[in-house]
Design a protein around this nucleic acid. Sequence first.
DNA 1: CTGAAAGCGCTTACAG
DNA 2: CTGAAAGCGCTTACAG
Lengths: 342, 342
Amino acid sequence: MAVTIKDVAQRSGYAVGTVSRVLNSSASVSDTAREKILATVEELGFTPNNNARQLKQREGRGYGIIVKGAGNRLFAGIVEEMQRRFSAAGKTVTLHYLDEDNDEVEQAVQLCRERKPLGILFLGGNRENFVRKFTSVPCPCVLVTTRADSLGFSNLSSVCTDDVAGAAEAMGHLLDAGHREVGVIGGDSSVLTPAMGSNTSALRLLGCQQAHLQRGLSFDPNRQAVAARFSLQGGYDAACRLLDHNPGITAIFAMADIMAIGALRAIQDRGLRVPEDISIVGYDGIEQSAYCIPRLTTVRQNAGRLAQRSVDILLQHTEGTEAVHEIIPFQLVCGESVRKVP
Amino acid sequence: MAVTIKDVAQRSGYAVGTVSRVLNSSASVSDTAREKILATVEELGFTPNNNARQLKQREGRGYGIIVKGAGNRLFAGIVEEMQRRFSAAGKTVTLHYLDEDNDEVEQAVQLCRERKPLGILFLGGNRENFVRKFTSVPCPCVLVTTRADSLGFSNLSSVCTDDVAGAAEAMGHLLDAGHREVGVIGGDSSVLTPAMGSNTSALRLLGCQQAHLQRGLSFDPNRQAVAARFSLQGGYDAACRLLDHNPGITAIFAMADIMAIGALRAIQDRGLRVPEDISIVGYDGIEQSAYCIPRLTTVRQNAGRLAQRSVDILLQHTEGTEAVHEIIPFQLVCGESVRKVP
DNA sequence: CTGAAAGCGCTTACAG
DNA sequence: CTGAAAGCGCTTACAG
């Protein structure tokens, strides 16, 4: 039914092997053959069947990006820049979006079996999944946005922001503005244990603690921090709980802008105002945060640089260099959501 | 390297054909064989190679969803419900995200060649692309969110909101609140021509016009409407242009919530307030719209129902029924962004 | 119910 | 530079 390489061969008068060679732009084909075959491909509107191609090919030619959380705006910005960068390098790349509850490493294993990518970029991976199955992924990879140095895989690099320092800066900004009772909205930080190195929320919580310690203040996560889903509703609900249980709170640090935006609304709905009554600092620096009313003060992760370095490292890694673990600087962006306490 | 069906056959003592049969749960396999083989599959951790499978299979078993615009929050909500519905029906479905500038029909053609889906759902398609190439898509499809009745393909259904009526209601709401100079932020509506049936923005613009006409008012799109990208920045810029050129404006209708949110911020930045100085109505009813400050008044498309009906129609369509074109009711959701003019 | 065999559309050594 | 052939990992009539 569909036109195959065989049709092209027949029509052009060459063998399928030769057609395949021009399609894969491999070395030795005469110009005459190339031209004739390309013309025939055009004429017949031939497109290669990737199933067959990848079944046979022992090594693919493209790269893969696995994104966990299609709705994540920070990731969206990073992905865009990654695509630009790949195409600037003349490489092809395919995107794969996953739900929060899917296993990205399993997906990668599958991808390697079927697509045999030259390398994979992970956006938003879960360390546990890597620990469990990453040995089955043979190609160079880089985990973006999460640290992977302690994982110790020789084919896994990482590029991320320093979560501890970022959170410490956010919290420090609030403390330095005079706030003494700051609520924290995070992910699952129930695990403030030695093993917590594995968890972004826990790292950021640690940053909160450090900021207090550095200023000779005390911080009680059990009382001041609440866990929440990284969503508008999650931030909304968490802010409500915080306000209910800690009436003395004058500021909130949300570990993601999306939650901060939810919190903004929750505060408003209680008849309070930001920043007059409650100050808020977010995290990520997604586009959205600059459009809020009030504009959100937030820790901006450098999406462009995160993307660039990830791609560059992956590309080098493919050439045979070792895994590297890079930290990208963040930036505290001051909006209108923080008030100085006199 | 990876474990194949051959390994399973060898280890279990059956032929590859038999293994294949239990994998595809086809009729005739003895319970003994099934058990033994399933156990071996488990033991060896075998996963079928889809390349080989799809290369051979003359008909796939799953469905496809092609989403144009990974960042579109309306689509995100619809997709979620679609997935639930497919899995409730015991069907598997694969998601494919495309950029705004990719050709979704081309993607579908490719998909049909390589994945041979039983049916495809399109979110956010471009009518021109369908006109150009849809004849090459052999399976039943439904275009969601855009009308396809006038396209006349026997294997293309559609499920959408009535854009003209929706926009008319939004605009009517503003007019009935006493606004007389309403600016409109839309897509490319330069084509207010007889051929405009092809363009969502143009349909919504038509709705604006109707709302005016019905009330004996006049509406001049050239003066009152500006085109914009469907993004925060697009809405922001458009609002600025509108405010610059039409100082008399007291309200704005944005053809997407995302643009309305951008407009909200633009108005604020000019020292004006919503709704005291300028009223705003959005379109879509994305989650975000309920978290804005002020909460957005918007025309809510019924994402759940849109999803349900799309899936149901596709499933029936696969069983052989004819293409249908269904309109899903919308709902004007009143937020806090519209003020009644005394 | 099960096995042996053909073949899906390609790529890639192997000869020439 | 080019052709003929093997084979990637599966599915699916075809026999039995």
